[in-house]
Each structure stands twice: as C-alpha cells, then as structure tokens.
Nucleic acid binder design. Structure first.
Length: 952
RNA sequence: GCGGAUGUGGCGAAAUUGGCAGACGCGCUAGACUCAGGAUCUAGUGCCCCUUAUACGGGCGUGGAGGUUCAAAUCCUCUCAUCCGCACCA
C-alpha cells in the first residue's frame, strides 16, 4: 500500500510549507547566525503558454543552493516575481478586447501555481509583479532620479542636476535657456531618432524585429521614421560599466559579450581642412604647413574623423562620410547633387541591418569636393558611402585603403589611389602587393612613405603623430565606444507611463519645457482605454486617453502628459532591489535592509540576457549608487547561465513523394534551399521512430534497410516542431521531485542538453529505490522497512556514508549537481544490498537528498522521526557533517604500469612510503614476469596514485 | 569574416586538473521471481583479436594529424566538425 506516490505527497508538503511559512526570509539577516546569501532567479515573463521545462532548470539549481545554504545556517533571501509588462499581453488585448491586466493576472496565477507545484522554497510573501502600481510607482521614481542626474566627467559620477554649473552666457539668457541647458545634460533626455515604424502593427520595432525591411511578425512593411524619443545617456557610464566587470564572478563569455557591446577603442580625432582651397589660397596653406609642421585652420572649415590608426595618416587617400552626415549638403557640388540625392534616399530606406547584411558590395557617390590631408598637403576626395555609419565616431572617416579591408575594397571598386605607409613583415605573403599599392595589410610594422616617421614602429608612430596633430591644434587622442545611448520610449500601451509632463502655452502648444510629475503624485497610472487597436499613425496609444488623464496642472500651468511608455526592460532593471523590501511605501527599498542584503550573491538565468538586461540593470544601479540610493557599485556578484534544454533527440530519414527512402548522403539542397535527390526531385525529411533505428558503423540506419542512412539530432523546443515538453505533464506522470532531479542530473548546469523522457523515468526509478530502502512498501501502513535498524554502521558502511556526505556537500557547493546525484545513487545501490541499514545512514541520506527532492525527503523524514517528536521538517534540518576518520582505509589498491600500461594492481597501506610501494610492486609475480630479465631503466612511484616501471 | 564554446561508448555524461578512461543514469542482453507493480532482483554491456569453449591473455580506443612527458581526454602546434554570439564600429 505505501508505495511512493508523489501525486499524494507533493501537494501535501507544498501546502504545509505554505501554511507554516517554512521558507520565510528575515527582513534583516541575522549575521550572528550565519552569512547572508541573496540567491536570485531571473524572473519570468508570464506568458499565456505557462512554464516550459527550461524555466525549472535554473530555478531548481537556485532552489538547491538556497535550501543547502539554509541547512548550513545561512540567512537566505530567495524570492520570485514576474516581469509582466510586454507586447504579447497588448496584442492579446487588441485581438480579444480583454484588458491586458486581466490576462496578465491570469497568467501570473498560472505561473504561480506551476512554480508552487515544483516545490521551490521561495518566500512568496515577497512576490512582485512589474505591472503592480505599487511596484511601477518606484520604476517611475527611479526614472525621475535618472532624469534629475547629469554626468560629471570630472568626478566620473552622476550628480543632481541642480549642481550642474551653468555657464554665465547661458545664465544671462534667462531661465528658459537654463532649463534647456540642463535638459541637454540630463541622463534622460529627448532626441530625434530614426526608428523602425510599422504602420500595420501600429508600433515601433526593435532592429531585431525587422527582417528585409519587413516586420518579423506578419511581414508588414516597416518604415524608417525620425521620431522624438526618450534616450538614456548610458554612454556616460561606458567606462565604468567596462571597469566594473573586472571584479565580477561572471562567466568570461558574458563579460566578453558586454565588453564587445560597449566596444571601447582608442585612437585619435583628426580635423581635415575642407575650406575653399582656391579662396583660402592653397599656397598660403602650404606655407603655413611648412612653418608649423601643420597648418592652423579656421574653425568650421574642417571635417572631423575618428581613427584607431593615426599612424596611417600619410596613407589617407580619400575620405568617406555617412549619408546622414550633416555636411553632406555643403560638400556636394552642383554637378553631383542629383546623384547624391538619389543615393541618400536609397540609403535611408535601408535599415541598419540591411546595410550591414547581404553581399556587402560597397556603394558610394563622390561629393565633388576635396579635403586636404594635413600631413601630405595633398587634396583627397570626399565620398559619401553607407559603409560608414553616422552613429559611430564622427560619422566620417579618413580612408586608408592600403591598411583597411573596407577602404581597400572601396578604393578598388572606384579606382582610388592606394598608398602603403606600413611595411608588412617579410613573412606577410602579400607584402609585395601591398608595397605596390595592390594589396591591403592591417597589421603593424615599420612606417614607410611617412616623412620623418619612416622606420618607426606602428605604436611609436601612433603616439608621435597624435602628439603632432595635438600641438598643431588639428587633432587629439580620443576614445570611442560602440555603445549607443539607450532608446527608452515605446509607442505601446502596456508599459509604465513616463512621470513627465510638457508645458503648454495659452494656445495649447508645447513650450518645450518639461516638468517631472511630483513624487507625491506617483504612480502615474495607465489611463482606462477601451480601444487598443492600432490606428496606423505613430502616435502612442495613450494619446487616445481622456482629457482628465492627458492634461495636468503643474506650477499653475497647464501641461500635457508624456504619452510614450517605458520599455519592458525598465521594470526588470531594479526588481532585485524591491524583493528586499517589497511593501515599503516610503522608499524603493529601506537603506538598512538594502545594505544588509546587497549585492546579489548568485544570479542564475539564460544567456539571452547577457547584454541588454544585465547591462541596463548595471547602468541603473550605478546611477542609484551615485545618487546614494544603493550601497554597492554592482548589483550581481556572481552570475551563472543555465544551458538551453533541447527537445528529445530525433532521427530523420528522407523520403521521396512516392514513399521510397533514400540515404541522407544522397540528399542535397537546390538553389532555393529545398532538399532534393540526385534527380532534382523534392524530398521530405521525415521523423523516424527510434525503434526503427539501428547503429551501423559510425552512422544510424533504418532497421528495415541497413543501406539507408539517417540523421540524429536534437532541436530547440518549438511549437511548430511539436517537441515542447510541458512541466505539468511531467509532474503528472513522474512527480515534481523526479522533474527536479532529472533536470539536475542531465548534465552540467551550463551545458546545452537534450530532453529525455526515459531519463526522467530513470531518476524516478532512483526515488522508488530510495523509498523502498526506507519504507516497507509491502505493509498496509506506512512503516519502516524492517532492514532499517538502530545499529551503528560497520566500517564499510561508515566509509560509504561519510564519503557520500563529503561528495554531496562539495558537489552541491560547487553546483556540480549531476555528480552529487550520481553519488547518492551509488549510496542507495550500496545500502539496498545491505541486510541491515543503520538508521543514522538513512537519516543522513534523507537530509542530503532534501534540497534536490524535497517532497520525498519530508515524507521519509517524518517516518524516520515518528518515534522522536519535535525534530521539525527535513527542509530545516542542519546539514550533516562528514567524519574524516571514517574515510581512512586500511589498505588501498595501486595500479602498476610497465612502460605506461597497467599490468597489475597491488595492495599497500595508504601511507606506505615510496620504497615500500616499489618493493611491493617488484615482488608481484606479474611484474616479475613482465620484466623477465630486462632491466628497469626508471621507476616512478606516485604515493597513493600509481607505480610506473620503465623497462628496456 | 571576427569572437566564444564544445567534440569521450548505441544515448545523457564522469574523470580529485598530467596518474587505472567510461563513475552514475538511459538503452540493450541473459537469467530469477511475482503480492502483475510505471514492477523488482541478479549478472553482463567501449571496440577488436586470440581460444572448440571457458579461464587467462593481447591489441586499439576520448573528432583528426603531429609533438612534449615515465605517463596526455587533460599541456603545445596544426586541422576538421558542430553550436552560440557579433557582424562594414574606421
């Protein structure tokens, strides 16, 4: 009767934990009790589909770490919440007319049910959702902090806008000028930006959502529109975001991604003279140049470029500016105007993505104007080409075709001159071509064709030329970042409204003055809207709000509210702070509690957030840090990315339309990418049942025809492929403990690995065995297995017990959960074979397993403790300690190698010295036979490890 | 193209960091048992060879080719494959 029945056990213990608040976290850690551990999961977006099996992977890992830490006396903060703003809820609303809030609440309820069903030890009293008004009040509040901050380069930190020094000439222009000056320095500012606007969807789209000029969803046309957008000045923090990475215990790959995203490079800015050469008298230019080394040029008559290779300045034979560069009109000669307008219009239709994808053939148009190379004094052509990006550096480059691939390609295409100024090393295979102006070399070497700098190495030339252009006033050392300011506004309904209003004049037109909504009026709630449908114009949905929401009086003046909303990132940027003090109505988090719990000690989530969420979050945190609202410079001390879980391995064969099979190596793809046979006939990939597959040599074949080779592969889970595994089904069929255990047993946490339902059955088998090891499953009532007895372990049992405690402890600490579970399986295999199973060993294994499979552990613990009351639940037991003395062995087996191959094994005392070990080895009959009169050239004895005899 | 990661049995994977390759699980094979249970238990299971057969024994083996070493999955060089990022950032 008392068989292991998770369907009965698990809900019962979940209800118990809930009712007794077993996993409630203290508001303040009691440090005298143990260290604090803030263990955090990336909170999910509560989609309508519910959890997929990828979620519980990371959540189980943090749950094990949290439970393990609690049992070791640590103060643990382990919360969960929901990132509940987002586009899907809004699209659902458009389709059904149901308010996003209703659907969101339903999804949150479903997610909560599923998470509780898996027995995670969250403190549910700290549950938050970014859509709660009490939550987004503080999202808006933080936005106002960002808005109220300017970045002081001198102290390298954000400071209150009131402390921004106002230059006298601004001051004298009056208060509006001062406000505008402040606005231009705030970390949150408005700017005109080109966005991807999709009229059919009625929203702007991220670059990632636009493919070939069409929307990813529905393939609707997308236009590039300049819209006034809110930007956050994350670029001011580029250097600190980069430096801060050094001290973080993060995967190196993630750090690298962030470094590349920030993309710091060093080089120089150089000003090229573009004044009217005839009018400004080029001979005077030449004279000045000879007198000073470099000419002084009138301001405004220069085209500024950024380069990482100032050493190649002598090789700059032309220049390129981006189509959007402000000087395009001025530089374009009348002859070129028509061509230029055509080119620029064409470029504006391309998205950034299109410009950078595809065959990348270089295109461009000559402006008809030349600049002057400041070191050679020669005129060089200025071109407009879209391979130069307006948004990086100065939007203009000096082109050095001999030493830059892209410039080389462009120069070849348009027949521009190529001058080598770096001598490639002898080993460079195209050295002759480079020197002859027919090749490109991007490495370093000795300078040539560079006047007085000839013969110096690239690094020295970089410094020398930078120094020269600096002293001549036509350039300076410069640092550039790929990182752009963060486009922060969205034309959507289901997001946080901005706590900003725009002042209106008497006629109802905006004056250009913005005001923050006073903090005591937060939150700015979303207005009631009946209609979410897109209207085809780029005005945000909030424009349709009723006047009593839209208009507000501030400082006695009529204002119109900002109608953009914040992106989904906003709420997820700071949620880890709110968990610490979720109910606080006076501050986003109590100072003392924040200082006690931060930083997050362990943060686990998917690698898809490697850049955006983790970078945005660090940025906000640094602003809050500068403004004194948080106590740490970084939010997340340690980060781990759980690997993706793929669908089950599938076997695929290929079938012609007539049903005949053919081998995977007889299938190729035609020009359109369709699979065809050697006759060009279409072929379908068909999933083959695993039972019909057998192994032949290195490949798989159809069981019915060994000559037909088939492919095996695991794919991402997707609805269209039909290989999505639903946790509800797994829990129903095997139980939550089995699901948890399997996800941890599959392999290392970080690895990508395929699902296997048979594997779930395997761990379920293990739990059944654990159950039967302790419970008499033939009895009618819940009683101990008769083999479980109150006797001490014998020495072998003690060694197994204590080595298991040790291994499970160490592996859990290092998050090697798969090997910890393997060790518990070995323990179970061993003790199942024992006629008598000492109670102390059974109690220990139940405690060891409880972080992994908490429900069965509670149930078995209750049985083991039935006679001794008041020992509490398994989840709160102290973690067992291992006894080193129990691990000591009387003798150990040592392999003996002859010439590196194991020939036999000998028994020696564990602490035997080298001489004794060698003596024992040489006395072994197999060793004597193997040596057989030959001499021992060398003998290596590694105590406790092995013996190797080199015989000749 | 650039960068990162990973390649170990039929499958998922271990291997104390240079010291017995394949722990543990799935699958498979054979047997036992039966209170027919997602049964359970026992034994076997990298590949190949020797042998009538067993015992014993031997060879090969961590994507491939070299190298260092008494000793290499682990270190070095080259190379191939797969996956994931980034992608004209001057």
């Amino acid at each position: 009767m008392p068989r292991y029945n998770p369907a009965e056990i698990e809900p019962r213990w979940q209800a118990f934990w809930d009712a007794s608040k077993t996993f409630s976290c203290p508001d303040m850690p009691n440090i005298s009790k143990g260290p604090k551990r803030y263990i955090l999961d990336m909170f999910p977006y509560p989609s309508g589909e519910g959890l997929h099996v990828g979620h519980p992977e990371g959540y189980t890992a943090t749950d094990i770490v949290s439970r393990f830490a609690r049992m070791n006396g640590h103060n643990v903060l382990h919360p969960m919440g929901f990132d509940s703003f987002g586009l899907p809820a809004e699209e659902h609303a458009i389709k059904t007319g149901e308010h996003p809030r209703i659907q969101t609440q339903r999804n949150i309820d479903n997610f909560t049910r599923q998470l509780k069903m898996l027995g995670f030890s969250y403190d549910w009293d700290r549950k938050i959702a970014t859509t709660d008004e009490a939550y987004f009040k503080w999202t808006q509040w933080i936005f106002l902090v960002v808005y109220d901050t300017w970045f002081d380069e001198a102290s390298d930190k954000g400071r209150p806008i009131a402390e921004l020094p106002i230059p006298p000439e601004i001051q004298s222009q009056g208060s509006d000028a001062v406000l505008r000056f402040q606005d231009s320095h705030r970390l949150a500012y408005q700017d005109d930006a080109l966005v991807n606007w999709c009229p059919a969807l009625g929203t702007v789209l991220a670059n990632e959502e636009v493919i070939d000029g069409k929307s990813e969803r529905g393939s609707h046309p997308v236009q590039r529109l300049p819209l006034r957008q809110w930007m956050l000045r994350i670029t001011s923090y580029a250097e600190r975001l980069l430096d801060g990475l050094d001290d973080l215990h993060w995967p190196t790959g993630i750090k690298k991604l962030q470094q590349d995203w920030i993309g710091r490079s060093t080089g120089a800015e150089v000003d090229f003279f573009i004044g009217d050469a005839s009018k400004s008298d080029s001979s005077a230019w030449q004279t000045a140049r000879q007198a000073n080394g470099f000419p002084k040029v009138p301001p405004g008559d220069v085209l500024r470029v950024y380069t990482t290779r100032p050493d190649t300045l002598f090789g700059a034979t032309y220049m390129v500016i981006a189509p959007e560069h402000p000087l395009v009109d001025r530089l374009t000669s009348p002859v070129q105007r028509t061509a230029m307008i055509a080119y620029r219009d064409k470029a504006s239709f391309k998205s950034d993505r299109e410009r950078t994808e595809g065959e990348r053939a270089k295109t461009g148009v000559y402006t008809g104007t030349d600049a002057i190379n400041p070191v050679t004094g020669k005129p060089i052509a200025i071109w407009v080409a879209d391979y130069v990006l307006a948004t990086y550096g100065t939007g203009a480059i000096m082109a050095v075709p001999a030493h830059d691939d892209r410039d080389f390609e462009f120069a070849v295409q348009f027949g521009l001159s190529i001058v080598a100024v770096v001598d490639p090393p002898q080993s460079a295979e195209n050295r002759d071509a480079v020197l002859a102006g027919r090749g490109c070399f991007i490495g370093v070497g000795k300078a040539i064709n560079s006047g007085e700098f000839n013969g110096q190495h690239t690094d020295a030339v970089k410094q020398a030329i930078t120094a020269r252009i600096t002293s001549a006033g036509i350039g300076r050392a410069a640092i550039n970042y790929k990182l752009r300011d963060w486009l922060f506004s969205r034309q959507r309904f289901w997001g946080e409204p901005f706590p900003i209003a725009h002042e209106l004049d008497a006629a109802g037109n905006p004056t250009g003055i913005k005001r923050a909504i006073p903090v005591d009026q937060l939150p700015v709630r979303l207005p009631d809207l009946a209609d979410f449908k897109p209207h085809g114009r780029p005005e945000p949905p909030l424009e349709k709000a009723a006047d009593d929401w839209l208009f507000v009086t501030l400082e006695g003046k009529r204002h119109k509210r900002e109608t953009n909303t914040m992106p989904q990132w906003a709420g997820s940027c700071w949620y880890y702070l709110r968990y610490i003090d979720p109910l606080n109505s006076l501050a986003l988090v109590d100072r003392e509690r924040e200082a006690a719990w931060m930083p997050v000690d362990l943060y686990v989530g998917g690698a898809e957030h490697a850049v955006l969420h983790l970078l945005y979050s660090r940025f906000w945190h640094k602003v809050l840090f500068d403004r004194g609202h948080v106590s740490t410079a970084e939010p997340f001390g340690r980060l781990i990315n759980q690997g993706m879980i793929l669908g089950e391995v599938e076997f695929t064969g290929y079938q012609r339309s007539d049903g005949t099979w053919l081998s995977s190596n007889q299938v190729r793809r035609d020009t359109e990418g369709n699979r065809v046979d050697d006759q060009g006939m279409a072929v379908n990939g068909v999933r083959v049942d695993e039972a019909d597959v057998e192994k032949h040599g290195d490949s798989f074949a159809l069981r019915t025809d060994a000559t037909i080779r088939i492919d095996s592969r695991a794919h991402k889970m997707s609805k269209s492929r039909g290989n999505v595994v639903n946790p509800d089904v797994v829990v129903n069929d095997y139980g939550a403990d089995s699901l948890r255990l399997f996800e941890m047993f599959m392999g290392p946490l970080e690895a990508t690995k395929p699902w296997s339902m048979a594997g779930v059955g395997g761990v379920r088998n293990f739990l059944d065995r654990v159950w039967r090891m302790i419970v008499d499953d033939r009895a009618d009532t819940m009683i101990l297995n008769p083999a479980v007895v109150d006797v001490p372990c014998d020495s072998e049992q003690a060694r197994v017990l204590h080595s298991t405690i040790r291994k499970v402890t160490e592996d859990t600490e290092s998050m090697s959960f798969n090997t910890a579970i393997a060790r518990m399986m070995e323990f179970t295999n061993f003790f199942t074979r024992c006629e008598s199973r000492p109670r102390e060993a059974m109690e220990a294994i139940v405690i060891l397993i409880s972080p992994y499979a908490p429900h069965i552990a509670e149930e078995l613990w209750q049985l083991l403790c039935a006679e001794s009351n008041n020992r509490g639940c398994a989840s709160l037991q102290p973690w067992p300690q291992w006894d080193e003395s129990a691990l000591v062995q009387t003798s150990i087996e040592l392999p003996v190698q002859i010439n590196g191959k194991v020939r036999t094994k000998i028994e020696v005392a564990p602490d035997a010295d080298e001489a004794t070990v060698l003596q024992t080895a040489l006395a072994d009959s197999r060793v004597i036979a193997a040596i057989d009169g030959k001499s021992i050239a060398k003998s290596i004895v590694v105590p406790g490890r092995l013996v190797n005899l080199v015989v000749k």
